[in-house]
Every structure is written in C-alpha cells, then in structure tokens.
Amino acid sequence: MMTGPMVWSRLSGGRTNAVWRAVSPSSDWVFKLFDVSRANPLFPNDPKAEIAALYALKGHDLAPECVAQFETSQGPCLIYTYLPGASAAKTDGSVLSALRHLHCLPAPLRIRQVDVSPSTLLAEGSRFLEGHTTLLAKQLRRNRPAPRDMPSVSPVFLHGDPTPANALSQDGMVRFVDWQCPAFGDPTADLAIALSPAMHHVYGQNQLTLADEMSALAQYPDPEIVDRYLSLRPFFRWRMAAYCVWKASIGEAVYADAAEAELSLEPAL
C-alpha cells in the first residue's frame, strides 16, 4: 500500500510507451501508459500479455513485479515495481545468460506463438518491403536469402524485445523490463533481437561487432541453440533490415541508418 506524497519523474529510453517513476515513502513504482497504436507485426504492444508475463515471472528475479493495472482516457496503464540498474551498453554474455534463465521457465498461457523458420522470416520481411522502391529495398529483394528447411526445436518462454535498452544490470545481475511483446517459440528469436545491430543503433547503444556477438554467444549455455542461431542469422538479419525500411518509410528516420547497421554484420547480404 502506498502512503505519503509521490515524487514523479519521466523515464527516458522507451520508444513505444510513456513511462514515469513515482516514489513515495513506502513505494517505488513505474507507471506505464500504453500507446496501443504503436503495435506492429514484429513488436506487439500488448498490456495483457505484459501482465501475464510479469505474474509468471514473479519470484524469478528477471522482471519487475506487477502492482496494478487500470484504464485511462489515453489508454491502458500498468503499474509495476521500479528496477534499479543501468541499461546494458551492448548485449554481452550476462544478458544472454539471463535470457537462458528465462528460456528455462514455464511460459504463461495465452501469449502469442512465433515461428522463425526461414520461410516465415522471408515472408515477413517481404511484407515489410511491399510497395517500397528505395535503393535499400531493391537491394534486399535482390539479395533475399534462399529458403531452406530447418528442423523444429522445443518452444520456450521469450521476452520478445530483449534489446540492450531493456536489459538492466546491477551488481552483476541482469533483469528485463518492457515485457509487452512476450511470446512462446524458438529461443533464437530472442537471440536475434538481443544481438541485432539495428536495435543497438536505434536505442543509441554501442555498435556491436562480430567479436562482441561471438563473445556474448559463448555465454549462452546451449551450443545447439547457438549453432541454430548462427544458421538462422542471415534470415533474421534480412527480416530486420526489411523491418527498418518499413519503419523509416513511416517517418522514423533513425531506422534508415539502422537497416545499414543490420546488414554491416552480414556480409552475404
């Protein structure tokens, strides 16, 4: 129960929803006001899914605790406990180790399922490119990876948007915020977002190098999943670049350079 006056401050970093911290003598909470118009096929913005994820993760030290949720005239609002810590400068081994912890936990019911087979990734990227005639869009169409079959893998609980900006580190512990995109599916889906050069660029994080990527992957304690990610990486990178083309076309200029950043670590494209 909150008692006493609350001191409010706007939190920076989020590109999708408005977030404030409210501190009182008895509580330290985050108020997250959802802008549901910001949802898109790659990154849903679902307050009900976030609530489900936070309740499923209670006691696992990977996420804040849900306090309450309510509707406003501006959209849904979620209250959860404030997590201290600094956003990761870039995805490193500690972030991937924390993701592995998540991937071993039971997923909540009624969250979306994702398919990251090569054919699905290519189809999603192609939809993002529909109607675009920029030089980069044409380049992506010319260099579309050839589809191939991949065996299925057991689905796991996914964060869905584990960018460095959403990974908070304190005293060697990594926890995640912004759970509005949770999913059930291939663990490589989280690795691809966490290691995306485009996402590092969009959130102003340090540029990721191939050496950084391999160093981080060495701390994900499942070599088979790491090998699977490396096999799927050209398809993930192609889809992300196509997504950035689409985002740039709707007025988010930072994504134009993000697309180039995504392709910089995938020479085959």
Rank of each mutant, 00 (worst) to 15 (best):
P76M: 08
P118W: 01
F236P: 00
G13C: 06
P164W: 01
F235E: 00
R127T: 07
C66N: 13
Q180K: 05
A268W: 08
D186S: 11
A63E: 02
I193K: 02
Y80I: 10
A56N: 06
A167F: 09
E260Y: 10
W179K: 04
V7D: 10
V7E: 11
D35C: 10
R142A: 13
L158Y: 07
L109T: 09
Q69Y: 14
H201V: 07
R175W: 07
C181R: 11
V67R: 15
S154E: 14
E130G: 09
R110D: 07
L208T: 02
L230I: 09
L57A: 04
C104A: 15
E213F: 06
D35K: 11
Q205E: 09
L105C: 10
L217E: 01
N166I: 08
S87W: 02
W246H: 15
G75R: 03
S119T: 11
R100W: 14
A98I: 03
E266F: 06
H60D: 04
C244I: 08
D171H: 12
R175N: 04
T16K: 04
P155G: 08
R228I: 10
L62Q: 00
S169A: 15
L42D: 03
D28M: 06
T91H: 01
R142Q: 11
G185L: 05
F236L: 06
H159Y: 08
F128N: 01
E50L: 08
P234K: 11
V95G: 02
G251W: 09
T72F: 11
D186V: 11
V202N: 00
G13Y: 03
R127P: 00
R233K: 15
L105G: 11
L83A: 05
T188A: 13
M150L: 14
C104N: 15
A258N: 03
F70A: 13
W246L: 05
R110E: 08
Y203H: 13
K90D: 02
S169M: 15
L57W: 03
P234T: 12
A261Y: 01
K48T: 07
S152G: 11
E262C: 10
I193Q: 00
T134S: 15
T16Y: 04
D61F: 15
G75A: 13
W8M: 07
G251R: 12
A258F: 03
R239L: 05
E252I: 09
L263R: 03
M6W: 08
V202L: 03
L129I: 06
G13T: 08
S152N: 07
R144A: 05
P151L: 11
T120Q: 08
S97R: 12
V245Q: 06
V36Q: 03
H103N: 10
M173H: 12
Q180A: 14
G125C: 05
L102Y: 07
F184W: 14
M199F: 14
F236A: 04
Y80C: 08
K48L: 08
L217D: 01
F31D: 01
F70Q: 11
E224K: 15
S73M: 10
W179T: 01
L42T: 09
V95R: 03
E130A: 14
R175H: 09
R239A: 02
A22T: 10
T3Q: 14
R21Q: 10
V254L: 12
R15E: 07
L99Q: 02
R233L: 05
L99K: 03
G59W: 13
L195A: 07
Y243I: 09
Y80W: 14
S215G: 12
A98M: 06
P162V: 09
Y80L: 13
L99N: 00
A39G: 15
I79T: 09
A211T: 14
V23W: 01
